[in-house]
Design a protein around this nucleic acid. Sequence first.
DNA 1: TCACTCCGTTGATCCACGTCAACCACAAAT
DNA 2: ATTTGTGGTTGACGTGGATCAACGGAGTGA
Lengths: 248, 248
Amino acid sequence: MQVKAAIPITVADIKSACSQCNLLELCLPFGMTETEINRLDELVGTRRRIKRQQHLYRAGDPFEAIYAIRIGWFKTDVVLEDGREQVTGFQMTGEMLGLDGISTEAHSCNAIALEDSEVCVIAYDKLEELSRQVEGLQHQFHKVMSREIVRDHGVMMLLGSMRAEERLAAFLLNMSQRFAARGFASSEFHLRMTRDEIGSYLGLKLETVSRAFSKFQEEGLIAVQQKHVRLLDIQAMRQMIQHPAAIR
Amino acid sequence: MQVKAAIPITVADIKSACSQCNLLELCLPFGMTETEINRLDELVGTRRRIKRQQHLYRAGDPFEAIYAIRIGWFKTDVVLEDGREQVTGFQMTGEMLGLDGISTEAHSCNAIALEDSEVCVIAYDKLEELSRQVEGLQHQFHKVMSREIVRDHGVMMLLGSMRAEERLAAFLLNMSQRFAARGFASSEFHLRMTRDEIGSYLGLKLETVSRAFSKFQEEGLIAVQQKHVRLLDIQAMRQMIQHPAAIR
DNA sequence: TCACTCCGTTGATCCACGTCAACCACAAAT
DNA sequence: ATTTGTGGTTGACGTGGATCAACGGAGTGA
């Protein structure tokens, strides 16, 4: 059923590497000088298009490259032997995938496209080599990894200490903020993932996610229709996380 | 009440840096050549002793160094405005602390000693500089960061998809394996953290943790007395995680 | 030795979320 | 236009773990 989803792109496309890309601000080249960025172009040799529902990589695949998302959305997940799935993250344009593979030289999670997507392939050995020469690249790469660690700690807080509605509020605010950072509307957006996937990420069942959406709607915090969400009272949602209404 | 816990060590002590340390296998120098390790010695300038319950660093502190634990145990935690605490990890000898600080140049969590401890201070700017010169150091450092990301994903799986007893089993097996890696007994050890701290880490209340300990004891899986734990049936505990008994 | 504090255990009760089930909306296929 | 499948919503009910409460044991300091 699943087709291995590697569609290399023609040489013509390769031209427009980092130096031509409009994602500079969010991606690996952030904070680098123009000269440095030009050297990055050597690195980003190929692109890959991944169709919806296809894997960019699977747990166990040998690790060779990390990926920067140019277009589209992904989820990463870990699956236990008995089939339980935990979504560990949703990644969008300008974000990096594959960092999990460095430690054991094999990927430890699955990366699956939520919609037809395109990534820049960054050969890892070349990245290490270049980041020994280009200080800005080295530093930015370390920041990207560290940011992932900090994000993960936030998810732990969410999973370990927050109740269902707080989790959903935190999730929606996080989406909002990431859309904003890319110049998209921050209070109206289209979710690429299902209720089930959101639930897996938030440690909730899909019914609970659905009910929380409905509750927020009743309370006038948001307007939802299927995957389309409009945030009507961001301030109230922020307060929900910081000063939970529940007596405790 | 809390005293800032920086007790620099005399010059005499500094001599015995990485090249003399018996933690090579677990720590930053792993996989590096002897010559490379000698250069690491330049890096590890000072040590710090941290007394039980004192902070190595706090959320918000400016980020300047990462730390390798020489002796002792730490916990890291994140605290919400309303006081809810989430323990994000327990770190032991040979493990690294402070990686969270790279992304924003300020620490994003607290690191607190669970017992009187000692760490090697690794100035971060020097680490970046040296790892541009020493390939083995660069690679090992990246592996350490990546390993932290993989670990975090494991914790997400635990918090998002496992039930109370599975979480505790996973926790104990993880402890066991880390003791083993350091040449300590893998089936009998002393926990440095309280039930409350374990609970925070596992997303459970301390009472639930305590009950799970008691249940395991009744079932003959472990022998517990306060913080002293003996694992009697590691195999059964492994199966508990992979093939949960509960009908689902 | 006693008093005090912190930590752990255990029981009784409660409730947030899971489970089970029915139904509905929308899109793609025929 | 009809069928089929996937994903989302909502209701009724059950339960795992939280909450509340009491007590006990270990360590510490006077």
